[in-house]
Design a binder for these strands. Structure first.
Lengths: 223, 223
DNA sequence: TCCAAACCTGAAGCTTCCTTCATCTAAACA
DNA sequence: TGTTTAGATGAAGGAAGCTTCAGGTTTGGA
């Protein structure tokens, strides 16, 4: 996969007056709305602008191209989730490992499922827009917060913190993504969430330093 | 997101002679190759045909449109992984829960990581092509196999099999996707894989019928 | 009140790519 | 060897959407 670095993007006008700040927000909102209502195939700049109540020209005054608009939209959503995780990490600092993990998992889920439709819709554009870079950046950010939180716990881990953080993040994002993508009815979300918490908590117990081998027989990976 | 059902697709020529069967395979292979080498933005029908050593016209004799070609390519990959899971489920029938889970997890990983580049590349086109439908279909298929395997174990679960299956599938796909997307060096794969197996095995222990509460204090999900 | 800066407009140019189809070649078969 | 059917070709039609830019409107301050 080629790294579409994109040349240094032409700088665009920064919103100065209140009017234009509102315009930019309206454009970002409209992007999500069109995406949800019409799907990525009909997510054209003209349609977005129209929905935002402005003309295409205006759109191009704040975003150098379609791509950067979608990136900004995606980033806005991911930042929200990241901040929710960071807040949970702070809130549970110093607590027991499983309390931290549970707190973070629940916070993550809440943030991701608030406005589930937009979370789902944005998955679809991510690959058009190098969403992986953005996701990676934010994964590192929330990963740092989680690592810090885990190390503030009274217990030790028997595996490197990095490994545990990766495993937890992967399970979290995988579970929420699968949940959204299968369009599971909302009333079942609580059940899935409970299973996820069980999974993460029993994992973190299993990799606690002292009694890891006692709590669960850790299987060696073959091969 | 609108359901792009696509009208009933015009039936195309079925390969009859050996020559044309080879052509179809070459086109599918070329699709993956172009995708990996040039990225989804340059994945044009002309380029695919050229890489396959045929002309565009030939391509359109076997696929009614670009979309169906990409779907076929995606499906071919996912079917491989699904079959690996099914095989593992059969192989471990009747064993202990954690043995089944471990066996399936390892089989899944092996299948997914064999030719990791194509797995990663195909994620990118999935959303252009209603890949969710295909993924969902195959998720159900491998889910059925896994459910059957879990119920063949000597132990019982304290949660509905469906729930456990969903949780395991979600964690598996999430972990492998995250692994691929972060482009983690291959030498670290084993470590991640080991953590995943620990996570899944300790989960399945936690939701065993008898001593679920003893092995791990199952936290109640708040809210 | 008037000017300059900020902001907005939208028709049309431009590029890109999918898809078709009239025509040609190769294979099977009598 | 002649005929029929399968398979292959690729130039060109057509549709679609991104982006620009020349010119209009609004705002804030002098």
């Amino acid at each position: 996969m080629p790294v579409t670095l994109g040349p240094i993007e032409k700088p665009r006008k920064q919103p100065i007056q209140a009017r234009s700040t509102a315009t930019v927000e309206a454009i970002l909102d409209a992007t999500v709305q069109v995406l949800i209502a019409e799907g990525k195939d009909r997510l054209t700049t003209t349609r977005i602008a129209h929905r935002a109540g402005v003309s295409v020209g205006t759109l191009y005054q704040y975003f150098p191209n379609r791509r950067s608009l979608l990136q900004a939209t995606l980033r806005r959503k991911l930042v929200t989730v990241t901040e929710a995780i960071e807040a949970a990490c702070l809130e549970h600092r110093g607590e027991r490992l499983s309390a931290i993990v549970e707190g973070v998992a629940l916070a993550f889920f809440r943030a991701k499922m608030r406005d589930a439709a937009s979370s789902l819709a944005l998955y679809a554009v991510s690959s058009d827009v190098d969403g992986l870079r953005i996701a990676e950046e934010l994964r590192l950010r929330s990963g740092a917060a989680l690592a810090e939180a885990l190390e503030s716990a009274p217990e030790r881990l028997s595996v490197p913190t990095k490994e545990a953080v990766f495993a937890i993040q992967a399970a979290l994002s995988g579970m929420s993504r699968t949940l959204l993508e299968t369009r599971m009815p909302v009333r079942d979300h609580a059940t899935v969430q409970r299973n996820l918490v069980v999974m993460l908590c029993s994992y973190i117990q299993a990799v606690r330093a002292v009694d890891a081998l006692q709590a669960v027989a850790v299987p060696r990976a073959r091969q």
